[in-house]
Simulated scan of single mutants.
Amino acid sequence: MRGEQGLMVDLAAHSIPHRVYEHPAVFTVEESADIKAHLPGEHTKNLFLKDAGGAYWLVTVPADIRVDLKRLPEAIGCKRVSFGNAEDMLRLIGLAPGSVTPLAMINAAHGSVTVVLDAGLVAAELVNVHPLRNTATVGLSGADILRLLRHWGHAPVIAPIPTKDAA
């Protein structure tokens, strides 16, 4: 596991502009509302999923959408999905729930987890994600997140993510 130090080395090595914001630990999108109010850019949430065929998926979407899990498999090319467990998350991406980020793919073996990015996030100039811990947020462009994922040997799926209407 390369961890946050490896992440910072890669950001510097690829001259990726970014800004790190330190803050109290947050575990849910709701808990991060105050942080979101003070940081410009897109904010994210991450779903660690396992499909009916046994494959793992890390899906990163805008924080304010409700993902339609019934329609998601068709959009990303897999079978029915359910949430993965904390033990598999730790084993595969080296993080516990509450700290999940697409940047965790720095720790993932090639082919162990398929990362999915919402198409809108990839196009965003500023995307806020955890830098492998939930006591900070790092802001960088969607294109640079994509570039890092590819550098680490992953082939992200970029898709419009199906959403549920707010109830």
Rank of each mutant, 00 (worst) to 15 (best):
Y56V: 00
P73V: 00
T44I: 14
L39K: 08
A75R: 08
T44Q: 09
V61N: 03
L39M: 10
D51T: 06
G54A: 10
T60G: 10
V59G: 11
R66H: 15
K45N: 08
E74H: 11
A75K: 06
G77E: 06
A37G: 10
I65W: 02
L58S: 03
I65Q: 04
K45Q: 09
L49S: 03
A37V: 09
V67Y: 00
G41S: 08
T44L: 12
L72Q: 00
H43M: 06
N46M: 13
A75Q: 04
A63M: 07
P40Y: 12
K45G: 07
P62N: 14
K50F: 12
T60F: 08
A63Y: 14
K36G: 10
R71A: 13
R71C: 00
D64K: 07
V59Y: 15
A37R: 14
K70L: 10
D51K: 03
E42P: 07
L47W: 09
G53R: 14
L69Q: 06
K70D: 13
A52N: 11
T60R: 12
K36D: 11
I65R: 02
G41T: 02
G54P: 08
G54R: 08
L72V: 02
D51E: 11
W57R: 00
V59P: 11
I76R: 03
D64P: 05
H38V: 10
L39A: 07
I76K: 01
G53F: 11
P40A: 13
A55I: 01
P40T: 12
T60L: 09
R71W: 02
A75C: 07
E42N: 08
I76W: 03
P73A: 00
G41C: 09
N46L: 13
V67S: 00
G77K: 05
G54H: 09
E42F: 12
A75T: 04
E42Q: 13
L39G: 07
V59N: 10
H38T: 12
G77L: 04
A37S: 13
N46P: 11
L72Y: 06
R71E: 09
V61T: 15
E42A: 13
L58I: 04
V67M: 01
T44D: 09
A63D: 15
W57Y: 10
G77Y: 08
L49R: 00
R66A: 15
P62A: 14
W57T: 04
G53W: 11
G77T: 00
P40I: 11
P73W: 01
V61K: 02
Y56R: 01
G54Q: 10
L58E: 06
L72T: 02
L69D: 05
A37F: 10
P40D: 12
A37H: 11
K50T: 14
L49E: 05
K45F: 12
G77S: 04
I65M: 14
R71G: 01
K70V: 08
G41E: 07
Y56Q: 02
P73S: 02
